[in-house]
Amino acid sequence: MDAFFSAAWDVMSSDSTYLNTALFAAFLAFAASGEWVAERAGTLNISVEGMLLAGAFTSAVGFDITGSIAIGMASGLVGGLVIAGIQAEMSHRLAADQFVVGLTLNILVFGLAGFLDNEIQPETKLAHRFDIPLLSDLPLIGQALFGQRWPFYILYVLLPFTWWLVFRTRWGLELRAAGENPQSADVSGINVNRRRRQSIYYAGFTAGLGGGFLILAQIGQFEDSHVGGRGFIAIAAVIFGGWTLRGTIAGCVLFAFALASRLSIQGLGYDVNSELLQSAPFVVTILGMAIFAHRVRPPASLAQPFVRGLK
């Protein structure tokens, strides 16, 4: 038991744990913030996984062509938005089942990205680090929160902006209504499926940025296995957070911490079965869901397609 606590202490007091937690959490938060918007509007958007991977690939290609990190990030949007477009139009215009569409897209993107990666083999590098004066000198969390590569700081704008969009604009009000009670929203004169499509595009937008972040601020090289199910962890974070943005971010941080501890434990030289460690973040996710998920209330019409007409 002592060994466990000393290991835990080592992990907790290691700068690299915090740095990695912040990195992993940032990637999850890019994905989860848009996913949260989509779910508030009533879509359980499982193609976020595919959006992340597509965004990562297009941003790698964008950087390879131009050599510019900024353009690389912007090209990430292309991948995210293309997948969002297919998901949105298929599930909320053609009324195809959102899960079938999402699953298909995830498989499609995975195959396509692997194939194109072999064909194109985009060369990428990481954006430069940018220390925010004073704040980055804080102990433990200073470097983690304020000493990152610059795409990281997009989150500091994106998250408040997302909150503002959903709770302070008419668009946000209407998409919340569409997610809670589409019949009422429709009767009130709101185009429910258009709001739902738009919210999926927003998810594509943030996931596209997330893909760019992964390549240009976290890993530095495209690999089709790098997203590796973290789109689903982002979905879990939204559920864990009880469909609030604050809770969603907390979920991202918790799950990211589990991912980061794994690296730290190995980095610090502890001998723990690595397959077991690999599964740790997912175990934490499941535990987190088991403990918290039943206490929260999802949007009343989450994952229910809306068709106009008499009930």
């Binding site: 008419r170 009000l173 209407e174 919340r176 209504a177 809670e180 009670n181 019949q183 009422s184 929203a185 009767v187 009130s188 004169g189 709101i190 009343a300």
Partner: peptide, 16 residues
């Protein structure tokens, strides 16, 4: 009713 229950009165009134 054409109201959205989790929203407030004023939010419902302005909806649409």
């Amino acid at each position: 009713f054409s109201l959205v229950e989790p929203l407030t009165v004023w939010e419902n009134v302005t909806l649409g």
